[in-house]
Design a protein around this nucleic acid. Structure first.
Lengths: 157, 157
DNA sequence: TATTGTTATACTCTATAACTATA
DNA sequence: TATAGTTATAGAGTATAACAATA
């Protein structure tokens, strides 16, 4: 194992010759995971009646915003694999929330659209999302929310 | 379905009487999930040789920092369920990275400690984490990293 | 050749419920 | 009663690989 040449942003003071990368609390990835976990749990509680997951709501929302979107288009926006996208689409289709169609311009592609039931589910979901976001955003000032979104975007864009 | 009374932080201009909560891109939770996904994927690539997940590394790290820690102590620090913690511990034990012992002060509790193999795995993991964090933190100035961690902490604490 | 959708497969994370042992 | 660990179970997300149809 070769010794790393560069140690980036050691937010804790380092003793000369110290090759430790510091405390786990200074690891950004650690906090992203914890924050995601906390958000996930609160979301699940908020949505226990609706029985919709974060992913499923996001997909419904995006399909509603982009009628006739193809699965690959969805996959790109969600930063997901094709196979992963399929799994989620299948579940939503089974519950009658969306329908697959055939693209007129490209025989390989399919179109995705919400059913009336899907639109209704999305409307309920948006009410719950609002509550969920209130829980989340209550920790921040308006400016901070913008900053947080901007910083997170730098990671996933 | 009752109409929500309060609409918190609508970062897009709202038409009078508009009950829509806005664009999905203004939802903090959406960005947390995307950022987590991106981080997760990069982590997985970085750790493909070591065959360790984020959770597993975090557990190794925390056990190393807190010798004789009990599973519930670990669960608290990781914001995890007892059963979820068990599953992860079991995998790490099977690979010989940590050992369970008996607490001398409380018969119900067990102690967790790394084996030499576990310490070696952690050392390798920390090198990879460094690379991973470099990828992550390269998007930010040092001050921004601190801010991001502080804001994420408000969510999971 | 590349893209899109599909299927099969497998692993991790997550949570709930019920059980045992100990405090 | 409450806490700690355990086991069984189940669902969701993630990814890889291989295949068919189309561009």
């Amino acid at each position: 194992m070769t010794r790393p040449k560069e140690i980036l942003v050691p937010t804790t003071p380092h003793v000369e010759g110290d090759e430790d990368i510091g405390e786990i609390n200074n690891i950004v990835g650690f906090h992203i995971r914890l924050a995601h976990g906390a958000t996930y749990r609160h979301f699940t509680e908020t949505f226990s009646d609706l029985e919709l997951t974060q992913k499923q709501v996001s997909v419904l929302w995006l399909v509603d915003d982009h009628p006739d979107i193809a699965q690959t288009g969805l996959a790109k926006r969600m930063r997901m694999d094709r196979a992963t996208t399929m799994a989620i689409i299948n579940r939503l289709q089974k519950r009658g929330f969306l329908v697959r169609g055939k693209s007129k311009t490209d025989g390989r592609k399919q179109t995705l659209n919400l059913t009336d039931e899907g639109r209704q589910a999305l409307a309920s979901a948006k009410v719950a999302i609002q509550e969920h976001e209130k829980w989340l955003q209550s920790r921040f000032k308006k400016k901070e929310v913008e900053m947080l979104i901007e910083m997170l975007s730098r990671i996933h864009e």
